[in-house]
């Protein structure tokens, strides 16, 4: 689901921008300007490669870590219909991770290296998955609103410049649209159900609202993303634009069904046509990125344990007569 608009890039560890051959660079930028896709064997600036690996890798990690909070509800889903739908949904997310790791591998970093960086805490994933899924209603809010937010971001990114990533995203977006339907259905059943069910979904909404507002990342005014990334079509839409688009599409749906959002200042300004809201706590956002969110440690511990428990399987499947092949994108 879940790229999220915000892609973490530690500025202190960022290598110096490499000097590129001006002729090749101009040619590369002209191709992108013409709307052409860049393919794995094409020339590309080192920083383009680095930024893409970082972005696709973080997206892939978000998919496998994102499977954890929802995955814990598969065994508790109420009734056959919900159980089957949630199983299929979470399986899709793991499938997305597989697609995305393959897309990132075309840029020269192996899946193993990426997963090692994830479990060592070197590589990030979307902050939303560092919050707990406490009740069944969280499945509704995640499936409906977080998948919806992810779709806004991923549809934008699918028009980016790197061919393998775009193709993976097209398929992902297609599947995400079913996830959104699944989440929406659970959401509507709870919102229109018994008082207990309604209270569950309202509570989940209250808890998730801030992480959802965080999802697209800080305002572009505060963000360190350069215009180069936009020119190279690595980043396709601004965080603010994506957040506005999301609010326009989903806040009315939430209000229509009679639920509330925990921000008294949330309203659309009819003059500017822009949503106004209370700024979420950005301090918390950066704390969660640093690893201090409510579930960071647990998520990584689960991932690390499953890597360790599966190590003997991977070792046994390795064949001495076969070596690593970069996947075809």
């Amino acid at each position: 689901m879940y790229g999220g608009g915000y892609i973490h890039d530690d500025q202190k560890k960022k290598p110096e921008m490499q000097a590129e051959d001006p002729v090749l660079l101009a040619e590369f930028e002209a191709r992108i300007a013409r709307g052409e896709k860049i393919e794995p064997r094409d020339w590309m600036p080192a920083d383009y490669r680095r930024q893409l690996i970082r972005m696709i890798e973080q997206h892939a990690h978000s998919e496998i870590i994102g499977a954890l909070p929802e995955g814990t509800w598969i065994t508790r889903a109420p009734g056959f219909r919900r159980k089957l739908a949630l199983m299929a949904k979470v399986q899709d997310e793991v499938g997305h991770a597989q697609l995305l790791y393959s897309a990132a591998e075309t840029l020269g970093k192996s899946r193993e290296d990426m997963i090692n960086d994830l479990i060592n805490g070197k590589s990030k994933y979307s902050n939303v998955f560092n919050y707990p899924a406490k009740t069944w209603a969280d499945v509704a809010v995640i499936g409906f609103l977080i998948d919806a937010a992810a779709i806004v971001n991923q549809v934008a990114n699918s028009k980016g410049s790197y061919g393998p990533y775009c193709r993976a995203l097209e398929r992902i977006c297609y599947e995400e649209s079913f996830h959104l339907k699944q989440g929406h259905s659970v959401f509507v059943y709870l919102a229109t159900g018994t008082p207990t069910q309604r209270a569950m979904v309202q509570d989940a909404l209250n808890r998730w609202w801030q992480p959802i507002m965080h999802f697209f990342g800080p305002s572009d005014k505060m963000s360190q993303h350069t215009e180069t990334l936009m020119r190279w079509k690595v980043k396709m839409a601004s965080n603010d634009d994506m957040r506005q688009q999301f609010l326009s599409m989903y806040v009315p749906k939430i209000w229509e069904i009679g639920l509330t959002l925990p921000d008294p200042n949330l309203k659309k300004n009819p003059e500017t046509n822009q949503w106004e809201f209370t700024e979420p706590d950005w301090n918390e956002f950066y704390e969660v990125i640093k690893g201090n969110g409510p579930c960071n440690a647990e998520r990584l511990a689960v991932r690390r344990a499953s890597e360790e428990r599966g190590a003997w399987v991977r070792a046994a499947l390795k064949r001495a007569d076969q070596h690593y092949v970069t996947p075809l994108a």
């Binding site: 496998i64 995955g71 793991v94 689960v302 499953s306 499947l317």
Partner: peptide, 8 residues
């Protein structure tokens, strides 16, 4: 789900 030894 989410805990397999390899993604596949």
């Amino acid at each position: 789900t989410g805990l397999g030894p390899i993604l596949e």
